[in-house]
Design a protein around this nucleic acid. Structure first.
Lengths: 130, 130
DNA sequence: CCCAAACTACGAAACTGTTCGTAATTTGAC
DNA sequence: GTCAAATTACGAACAGTTTCGTAGTTTGGG
């Protein structure tokens, strides 16, 4: 039950749970367990335990007013993804954003629509720097 | 000493060591320890042990012909970064490259030169898809 | 040849993340 | 009110990571 201001980086299993919470909004353990069992195998009590740990860490809030507690992510998907990216950036790319983006773009096929959107963002960023 | 074909994803501490190897080329434990102690604190035997573990995992090669063994990374920086990026992609971005790149670009100031280079890559990718 | 210094090997402890079994609690149906 | 089903709480096992102490080995200088 100890919580403080700084939210830690979610682990792998925790990230899987957060994905579900971001997608579904406030969810019960059962909800999450059902979604997750489509992809990986994870026992019900494992999901529960993880949520309890995440609650202790401050990664999720919970509403205990009902029999089945409702959990929701504290940090938005956007903010968390940002955190994970900068983390990887410092950890493995020596802080070089150009390097990371170049690798990312090269590593997977990206649709034309996506490329166009990224180009749009580039325009914006260059405009700002002018 | 057991090694097989597939190289596992390096852990956090291992990645720090790999950074040094990529930067310096073949290095002794002492070399790596000295570089690393500029940034984090890590005992000499800790670095040694990690390198032994990495050797078992197949992450590094070593030359034992000299008194001080020379270690070098098996996988190139490029390949490893690629691995880490796609890993993060699936883990936290639902496989959406657009999403990852957009976040990356937004999260840190990027120089005009870097933006230009990324734009160049975009041009290339769009050309290929035509 | 002998010793000190540098090095490697190895085991074990501390820590974190993940898993799940079991016990206790709550709730609704009857 | 009682019971079964669903739920939460909790502890413990297990695996992987990181740390370092200690012991043994090698080497060069004297």
């Amino acid at each position: 039950m100890a919580r403080d201001k700084t939210i830690p980086r979610p682990t792998q299993a925790e990230t899987a749970i957060l994905q579900v919470l971001w997608q579904r909004g406030p969810s019960t353990v059962r909800d999450i367990h059902e979604v997750l069992n489509g992809e990986r195998t994870m026992g019900y009590t494992t999901v529960l335990k993880l949520l309890q740990i995440m609650y202790d860490k401050g990664l999720v809030r919970r509403d205990e007013s009902r029999r089945s507690h409702l959990y929701q992510a504290v940090s938005s998907q956007r903010r968390t993804q940002q955190q994970l990216v900068t983390d990887l950036l410092d950890r493995a790319f020596g802080g070089s954003m150009r390097n990371l983006v170049m690798h990312a773009l090269s590593s997977r096929k990206t649709s034309r629509a996506d490329l166009a959107e990224i180009r749009g963002l580039l325009d914006e960023l260059e405009e700002k720097q002018r």
